[in-house]
Nucleic acid binder design. Structure first.
Lengths: 342, 342
DNA sequence: TTGTACGCGTTATCAG
DNA sequence: CTGATAACGCGTACAA
């Protein structure tokens, strides 16, 4: 038999019907464990491999995936929405639909209720971007129990090893920022300001930890100052940054750890004046991209929104089909962007 | 009609048969231009979009693609082969086959003959990695004329705008290396050694140009030394590097522009001794990865082999199906790798 | 130059 | 618990 064996060949070889083969392949109930074994052994023997193309066509409907994003209107979320739309259009011809759902504002309970209301009819899988809390974690698990595939997206539900995750390792991202910052400043001496939106979230915490770790290990001659929160009104933030810059004439670097870098970078440019300060921020948005081009930031540490979205979709789909993904393709890279590799 | 229109709907709406619709969709001959117009207008009107899944299944056979790689046994080519194998296995379930073909050694004419011998029966498309020459360019064009899709891969046939290309912009890659080198060295003064395998190839030339451009524009206080060729025997290379290091005590950076960085980096570590020299090389291989971890190189400028391979396959497939690709997904990124974002 | 009919390999449905 | 059979939407040979 020169051609690849089909389900028909498999059924014949295993001495069962097509329907039974299908049940085994898709892990459905209603087959004697003995029969399951026989089929699985035959799969090995004849080297059967599923034809995903045929399987997708035979479902008679497209996969329906949704991305649950926080309401906040920052540029990073904006980019993400854009990419989801773009990727959805491109994937339409492959029988995959994707859309954005906005999470309710009222904290983890609101989100949990929102997730509980999602209909199995409406979605085959959802990617959820939400801060880690026990409520959210449980809500995600309950979604899965109802037969909807669910993954955590960008923001990891770290304590839940069983919930798949698509996104970067924020500790490594912070470490990368630290390594670059140290190399840019060295061999000079000096101190480094760290600006974050709020240090409540685990993601921010991990970046900060990674940053500090590398600065301590590789660049002990540099001083990392206590984090400043940019959450809150602009006036206050401006005062705080001014104070630090006045008090520490040795400031040699500013690390904007938050995903939204607009306000911090703007203030840094305004208040830093003519001083020789190295600036690193996260995420590529219209604002940070322009800042990089115009020399208002030296480097960006980013994750590619398009890749994130496609990876989430591929991961959800693979789970729907009881398949594994190609690990090397799904590892989201921590990218370093300079002016010339934008 | 709530469902997406099918070819059947399209045929009915346009007042033609399924076969005619198929001919128009796939750009085949044998349809009056008037009819083509009608069908295309109807496609717009009813918002028809092809179902790629069904189309692939209906072909009754997998796509067969080949990567033509140079024989040379460097680590970068090795990585590429590995990835092609990996991706081929993953794509098998999507009715796509891919394999590696090794180009003959005897220069452009040999390659041209090799390409001429490829059978239409054997391949639907090929990705060719070969230095730019008029012979190769023409050979690629002739392959296309025989109905096999062809793209240039990693090494661009730059003078041929009509031949699609999957790979990075080497000028930008060199510029990125230059920007990083300048920032790592500054505010110190000094000179920079540039090491290349041979500066015959257009790719090397472009990297060198990009590097020089940025160094001149952004870091005029640094001196870029004339390129050294690492092609040839190790003894000679060793002598040349030694001479430069002796003659210029101000050497502050070494840029290894070649894809194979093993010898240059090894010699740099050996001869550079205790001097404070910033080192940048290209491509991620087992060797460069270890060098980065162990501090024998500060940064790598890379292109992801897995992404390159997948992008080439998607591009070839899209061309087979008379489709366009999602541009944002197919732009190969110039990545900057530090120790912590490996 | 155009149309018809069959088949691709799987899933879903319904009957046993 | 298992089996038979009709789809899914398109490509392709062949007929007209």
């Amino acid at each position: 038999m020169p051609d690849r064996p089909t389900t028909r060949d498999l059924a014949k070889a295993a001495g069962v019907s097509l329907a039974t083969v299908d049940r085994v392949l898709n892990g459905r109930a209603g087959v004697r464990s003995k029969t399951v074994e026989v089929v699985n052994k035959t799969i090995q023997e004849i080297g059967f491999q599923r034809n995903v193309v045929a399987a997708t066509l035979a479902r008679r409907r497209a996969y329906r995936f949704a991305f649950v994003l926080p309401l906040q209107s920052g540029e990073f979320i904006g980019q993400l929405s854009l990419r989801i739309g773009e990727v959805a259009r491109a994937f339409a011809s492959e029988m995959i639909e994707a859309e954005v759902l906005t999470a309710p504002e009222d904290g983890p309970h609101g989100l949990a209720r929102f997730l509980a209301d999602l209909s199995v009819q409406a979605y085959d899988g959802i990617a959820i971007m939400a801060p880690e809390t026990p409520h959210v974690r449980d809500a995600i698990r309950r979604v899965e129990e109802r037969g909807i595939q669910a993954i955590s997206f960008i923001s990891r539900q770290a304590a839940a090893e069983d919930i798949p995750f698509v996104g970067i390792d924020n500790h490594a991202a912070g470490a990368t920022a630290g390594e670059l910052m140290g190399r840019l400043i060295s061999p000079r001496q000096g101190s480094v300001i760290v600006l974050g939106e709020s240090f409540q979230s685990r993601d921010s915490l991990e970046r900060r930890l990674g940053f500090d770790r590398v600065m301590g290990d590789m660049f002990p001659h540099l001083t990392v100052l206590p984090s400043l929160e940019t959450h809150g009104d602009e006036g206050r933030v401006r005062r705080v940054i001014s104070q630090v810059l006045d008090a520490r004439p040795d400031v040699a670097g500013i690390y904007v750890l938050a995903s939204e870098a607009r306000l911090p970078l703007t203030l840094a440019a305004e208040l830093g004046g003519g001083r020789d300060i190295q600036r690193i921020a996260h995420e590529r948005t219209p604002f940070t991209e322009a800042a990089l081009r115009e020399g208002r930031v030296e480097a960006l540490i980013t994750q590619d929104p398009g890749h994130l979205v496609r990876s989430a979709i591929r991961t959800l789909r693979a789970r729907c089909e009881n398949r594994t993904t190609l690990a090397s393709q799904e590892r989201i890279r921590i990218e370093v962007l300079l002016k010339h590799n934008l």
